[in-house]
Design a protein around this nucleic acid. Structure first.
Length: 424
RNA sequence: GCGGUCGUGGCGAAGUGGUUAACGCACCGGAUUGUGGUUCCGGCAUACGUGGGUUCGAUCCCCACCGGUCGCCCCA
């Protein structure tokens, strides 16, 4: 049996890295005052069709959709925003006194795609959403947190790319301009773009195949079609980034894949060597109007999401070692049946007292038990044999210095607690 | 979904159309009787992705499928 395609097991040795990263992200959220929300991993299919958008690749070909025994069409969540917004509306969080509502989530997402490194069918996203504020400063805050997610862990080769898609009015005009611009060249564009031109002309702009087409260079830019308000909003966002001295580049061809975005759109990419084709670490943007689409009151929103897998890849690419896999406190070596029983008792006592202890369960001889202790990087080894038992003492050995000391069994817990606390 | 490439024991990695498929690491045991990372000796292992086909015979040849990987699409 194998795990299904595009899924992976995260085993000890790696799981510690995940734990480390996840808790770092949670800590970061505390500083920015984003609080956790947990939503179901599956939702009504309709939620994503409406929320993410029917024209998107996600909805058209990547959803894990199934029918439950009651005949409902459900879908494993392909992203987090739709669920968060649904929950926000369902629980009328918009009516609560503390606004804006600042949330974060972390968990698995599912997309049916051809797997490759950094792209799994079940993958993990960490994301935040700020609902209820149309202040450009919060756009900047979201980007700041996004960047900090990586910087906190020591990553350096990062590139923040931003763009503005404008409000719905700007987008509409731009869309028409694009169609007008490209339609005469329709036949010269790649097949995909011919489809894009009808469905979502914005996407033609970031086509890699047609990059060199002359019409591409003269194509109307989103930025040129921003109305005054949108333009001003974008300027404000940039000025806040400048105030925080967060470097960014504006890429007028940056287009996000989901329908709900407007105004601010951004991506964080890795510059690091050793990254393959997939260099996008995370992405986000503003989605004013989505809450309304979900049946809530007019509420602006912005958020972003990052892939934990890709974050881990970035760490690897930059050669950053996370401080995990530290050794355990003690290893209990027991010799003989009597001692074994006493060892079990004392191990239990030590653990209750907060000491990290393990012992042998394979009935191995002393030498092998020491090997295990060594491999576990135990700081202390407690040896309890016939002799010690008779004397009512245990031999405690510091694996670092090699020093040994007889400690009465009654004092063992306090002795070790002291030692481990750095006492004498 | 499309194209390239790959698939040998826990990991890494040789190899051949034909008796018992190298080796390294790891693991386990031993090197005078109860003490760890080195060394020496010995041992272990459901190993040729799966299913067909060609052949007297296939791990090695052919096909399909599955899986990994790289790229495209797209994205996190």
């Amino acid at each position: 049996m194998k795990a299904p395609r595009g899924t992976q097991d995260i085993l000890p040795g790696t799981s510690e890295k995940w734990q480390y990263v996840e808790s770092a992200l949670i800590e970061l959220c505390k500083k920015y005052n984003y609080r956790e929300i947990r939503t179901p991993v599956f939702e009504h299919t309709e939620l994503f069709q409406r929320g993410v958008g029917d024209t998107t690749d996600i909805v058209q070909k990547e959803m894990y959709t199934f029918e439950d025994r009651g005949g409902r069409s459900l879908t494993l969540r392909p992203e987090g925003t739709a669920s968060v917004v649904r929950s926000f509306v369902e629980h009328k969080v918009f009516g609560q006194p503390m606004q804006p509502t600042k949330l974060f989530y972390i968990g698995p997402m599912f997309r049916y795609e051809r797997p490759q490194q950094g792209r799994m069918r079940q993958f993990y996203q960490f994301g935040i959403e700020a609902l209820g504020s149309a202040d450009p400063a919060i756009d900047a805050e979201v980007m700041a947190l996004a960047m900090a997610s990586y910087q906190e862990l020591g990553l350096k080769s990062l590139k923040l790319v931003i763009n503005s898609l404008g409000d719905s009015e700007s987008r509409k005009q731009h869309r028409e301009a694009l169609i007008k611009h490209f339609d005469p060249h329709r036949e010269e564009l790649c097949e995909d773009c011919q489809v894009r031109l009808d469905k979502n002309p914005l996407r033609v702009l970031d086509c890699k195949k047609d990059r060199e087409h002359p019409a591409m260079k003269t194509a109307p830019s989103v930025l040129d079609y921003l109305n005054e308000e949108s333009k001003e909003y974008f300027e404000q966002v940039k000025s806040y980034l400048d105030a925080m001295e967060i470097p960014y580049v504006v890429d007028k061809n940056l287009v996000r894949g989901l329908d709900y975005y407007n105004h601010t759109a951004f991506e964080i990419m890795s510059d690091a060597e050793g990254f393959g084709a997939i260099t996008t670490l995370s992405g986000g943007g503003r989605y004013n109007g989505l809450v309304e689409d979900m049946g809530g009151p007019e509420t602006p929103g912005i958020g972003f999401a990052l892939s934990i897998e890709r974050l881990l890849m970035a760490l690897e690419a930059e050669g950053i070692e996370l401080p995990v896999n530290e050794g355990i406190d003690c290893y209990f070596v027991a010799l003989g049946d009597q001692a074994e029983k006493e060892a079990v008792r004392l191990t239990y006592q030590l653990r209750k007292a907060g000491v990290q202890v393990d012992k042998d369960y394979l009935g191995r001889k002393i030498k092998s038990q020491f090997k295990s202790a060594d491999r576990l990087e135990a700081k202390y080894v407690i040896v309890l044999g016939e002799n010690e038992l008779e004397a009512g003492q245990a031999n405690v050995k510091s694996m670092e210095t090699g020093e040994q000391q007889e400690v009465s069994l009654a004092d063992l817990v306090t002795y070790l607690k002291n030692k481990l606390a750095g006492g004498k």
